[in-house]
Nucleic acid binder design. Structure first.
Length: 827
DNA sequence: CATGGGTAGTGA
DNA sequence: TCACTACC
């Protein structure tokens, strides 16, 4: 893959928090606004300013009061406070909403922050290049676009047009790709606005650093292209510190040591010289970036690698005693618990490590920070209490200075900062509790699912998956569905040689999903269902003669333990397998597979030679010659452009299918959430006095994938009754279950209250030695009681499950959705 | 007391 | 593993 001829984009939301506030409260639109945090002291600290307010001189970091002075009519919505600290959930959710839209355009997306994402659109550009003549690109196809080194886009357009014919200059050849990129980015930004209402800016260049750099050059709601031949023009005046990674101490050091200020001055130094002055790595990096070279990949990463929260306790607010420390650790732990719950639902993963960080004030007045990590055991319940207990343990054991004096429980040094974060996520590999998913799927297949799906408006991915293979076998299906290869052969995502290789490869190693689909259709009429172990599993286990192991299961096989070969499992495994860096993929493929792979190429070659003359054969030869160590066994995935070993391509296509399945899951989840939100808003307008009830409903939103939530999905013609507890319409024969749910929820809340009595600073009835002991022990009565409640939930859900899976009203998609959710929550 | 809370990454 | 840097 040519790192130097990519088309890389940075999408950055304009004053994102302000936009979120404007969307939530449309009355604010058009007014100068700034989002503040903690308003009591001097009007709070400003963390985002919209462009109306910027025009009045309001900036980030100002206090709210100061902003009011500069701009008396400014509106200052504030970040919500939860558990005594700022809570940015709504902005985080909004960021996700945007990223999901971006993801539709390329899988090669890296979320860089809450409001920024890098996209590698090299492949979409290449594809567009085939259908779009660069000479026909006009200004209206690239609105709000700037090109560095040109007064306006038209000049750039003209320049590219005039050079296309000759294509003498290599850089101009890339410029036309950037132009196509700009067309696509215009579409992306328009879609983001259409689907979310948010505006963003973009930088379009051939690497991440430059895309990021130019993104900020025209804002808001603009996009900026940086053609390679304009880099030096830009660098001539560009302060070195503006470049990512050079904004801090390192950038200062570079400027000091080399006595330079702007980027172009960096070019005079030899690589060796830079390496001696800094170190090898930094020296080379500086040498490259001075020439506009940055080889860093855009990683395909949507989810954060860690989830954490922290708080400062400045000056007098510093924590001085154990009570205070305890209280805040508890609050932080509870927030992590809440966020992990959402994360588990959306991503089906579990953190394996937690880190507590803190800083204390030294006797000399300076702050020193420390952090301690803890790797979870399998017995650890991942809840706020565990986080808090472990955090406290770690802090106390890490520092004698922290040990409270026994008489007054005062800490020896004041704590100025506390933070807990969890990370090192691993995918949840279901075993026992997922086994029923198989029966469930079987039941779904044995019914006439299609009848039901046809009556529905939206055709879901799962529905398509089930319907499609009727006309094509697994291989074709996989090819068409996941590699966007059209039947007519007119529009092809990949080049012909790649197609041949992948098709041949598919014959040798069938995918889990392909097998699943085939067998589903063969067996569905008899009401049985086959589950076949995936290639991935097989690779891990001992080799067997047959390619796959077939397990039969019908309605009578409820007790069989189908350890782990479930759809959900496959989705997770497929995703886990490819979510990391490309190197991991290389590691997975072993020598044996590589050998098979080469064999494949020879097979293909001979078959092609026989059939179609030598053109294809030459192409394959070329691939081999180009890079004997890489290209033979690797192929660029048309979906995400990662280099995938040929023998892994099936698993990799499964990965993309899995992503899509999971995305559909999420969409259904979100739709439901939206529905509940809408009724909530409606009700708030009708009835403002029922705050308490709202609170209950909010909780319900968080717990959306519950029986109740699912029950709400049923058709409107079914007889329903209003639930007295939450006011939702419930299908009559589900009402009992629904009320049980409320009871269970109440109980659970009560228990939670009991287990965490320290809710505020003013709560005085804490601090006995007895209490302390209880806090520090994870194996207390409360925990056991909580467990039993979970069991209660389980039983009820299973009840719902049983009644639902025999119901012909639900599409297979719905049923599968439910099951996946069921598995995630009640793991 | 006074830009705070939240991420990712690196080197020893 | 932890201290520290860098960025939004």
């Amino acid at each position: 893959m040519d790192q130097e001829n990519r088309v890389v984009v940075l999408i950055d939301m304009d004053c994102f928090y302000c936009q979120v506030e404007e969307k939530l409260n449309p009355e604010l639109k058009g007014m100068p606004i700034a989002v503040v945090q903690y308003n009591p002291w001097k009007g709070g600290g400003i963390i985002a300013v919209n462009y109306e307010a910027r025009a009045m001189g309001v900036t980030r970091g100002m206090r709210g009061d100061e902003a009011k002075e500069k701009c008396p009519e400014i509106q200052l919505p504030s970040v919500p406070c939860q558990r005594g600290k700022a809570d940015i959930t709504k902005y985080r959710e909004a960021g996700k909403e945007v990223a999901r839209v971006l993801q539709k355009f390329t899988a090669l997306l890296e979320r860089a922050s809450i409001d920024e994402a890098y996209l590698d659109i090299t492949l979409p550009v290449e594809e567009r290049l085939r259908s779009l003549d660069v000479n026909t690109i006009s200004t209206d196809m690239v609105p709000n676009t700037f090109a560095l080194g040109y007064n306006c886009v038209d000049e750039f357009l003209a320049d590219v047009h005039s050079c296309v014919a000759e294509s003498i200059d290599f850089e101009y050849d890339h410029a036309k790709r950037l132009l196509i990129g700009a067309v696509i980015v215009s579409e992306i930004r328009a879609t983001v606005y259409e689907e979310t209402g948010y505006r963003c800016s973009a930088g379009i260049a051939h690497n991440k650093i430059l895309a990021k750099l130019v993104c900020g050059m025209n804002k808001p709601n603009k996009q900026t292209i940086l053609p390679k031949h304009s880099i030096n023009i830009l660098y001539k005046t560009l302060p070195l510190k503006k470049v990512k990674h050079l904004g801090g101490k390192f950038g200062d050091a570079v400027c000091d040591i080399l006595k330079i200020k702007v980027m172009s001055e960096l070019q005079q130094f030899a690589e060796k010289e830079l390496q001696t002055r800094f170190d090898d790595k930094n020296g080379s990096w500086l040498y490259n970036i001075a020439r506009g070279i940055d080889l860093e990949h855009v990683q395909a990463r949507f989810n954060p690698k860690s989830i954490g929260c922290c708080k400062q306790f400045r000056g007098k607010a510093a924590l001085l005693d154990l009570e205070n420390l305890t209280k805040w650790l508890k609050d932080l732990g509870d927030e992590i618990e809440d966020r992990l719950e959402t994360d588990a639902l959306e991503n089906n993963r579990t953190p394996k490590q937690m880190v507590v960080s803190y800083s204390v004030q030294m006797p000399d007045g300076r702050d020193t920070s420390s952090s301690r990590s803890y790797n979870f055991n399998t017995e650890d319940e991942l809840c706020g209490e565990t986080f808090y207990n472990k955090a406290l343990e770690l802090i106390i054991e890490s520092s004698e200075g922290m040990k409270p004096k026994h008489c007054n429980r005062k800490l020896k040094a004041p704590i100025k900062f506390l933070g807990i974060s969890v990370g090192k996520f691993e995918d949840n590999t279901e075993s026992k509790k997922t086994k029923k998913i198989v029966d469930y799927f079987a039941a779904g297949c044995s019914k006439d699912v299609n009848k039901n799906t046809k009556s529905e408006n939206k055709e879901t991915l799962v529905d398509k998956v089930v319907e499609k293979p009727k006309s094509s076998d697994g291989k074709d299906f996989i090819m068409k569905k996941f590699f966007q290869v059209k039947d007519d052969g007119v529009e092809k995502t990949m080049d012909v040689a790649s197609n041949v290789i992948i098709e041949a490869s598919l014959d040798k190693q069938e995918s889990f999903f392909a097998k699943m689909l085939k067998n589903t259709h063969k067996e569905s009429e008899q009401g049985t269902y086959n589950v076949i172990e995936s290639q991935i599993q097989k690779d891990n286990a001992k080799p067997r003669t047959p390619n796959c192991e077939v397990m039969k299961c019908g309605d009578d096989s409820n007790d069989t333990d189908y350890s782990g070969s479930t759809i959900n499992n496959e989705i997770n495994k497929s995703i886990a397998l490819f979510e990391d860096e490309p190197q991991d993929i290389a590691r997975i493929s072993n020598i044996r597979q590589l050998l098979n792979c080469k064999q494949d190429i020879t097979d293909i070659k001979s078959s092609v030679d026989g059939n179609e003359g030598s053109n294809l054969s030459n192409q394959i030869d070329n691939i081999q010659e180009e890079n004997i160590h890489d290209k033979i066994e690797n192929i660029d995935c048309p979906e995400c452009r990662k280099s995938i070993p040929l023998n892994m391509i099936v698993q990799h296509s499964d990965y993309h299918l899995a992503l899509k399945l999971r995305e559909e899951e999420r969409q259904i989840f979100r739709d439901e959430k939206d529905k509940i939100n809408k009724t909530l808003i409606e009700r708030r307008q009708n009835d403002r006095s029922h705050k308490q009830r709202e609170k209950g409903d909010r909780q319900k939103i968080n717990m959306a994938p519950s029986i109740e939530k699912f029950v709400m999905k049923v058709d409107k013609c079914v007889p329903t009754e209003m639930c007295v507890q939450c006011g939702t319409r419930i299908v009559l024969d589900k009402l009992t279950q629904h009320l049980d749910f409320h009871e269970a929820q109440k109980l659970r809340r009560e228990l939670k209250q009991k287990s965490s009595p320290i809710k505020t600073n003013t709560n005085r009835n804490v601090g006995s030695v007895k209490r302390k002991k209880k806090m520090l022990s994870p194996t207390n009565k409360t925990k056991l009681q909580c467990k039993s409640i979970d069991t209660f939930f389980m039983v009820r859900t299973t009840g719902a499950f049983l009644s639902l899976h025999t119901s012909p009203r639900h599409s297979l998609s719905d049923q599968l959705s439910f099951l996946l959710r069921y598995v995630v929550i009640y793991r």
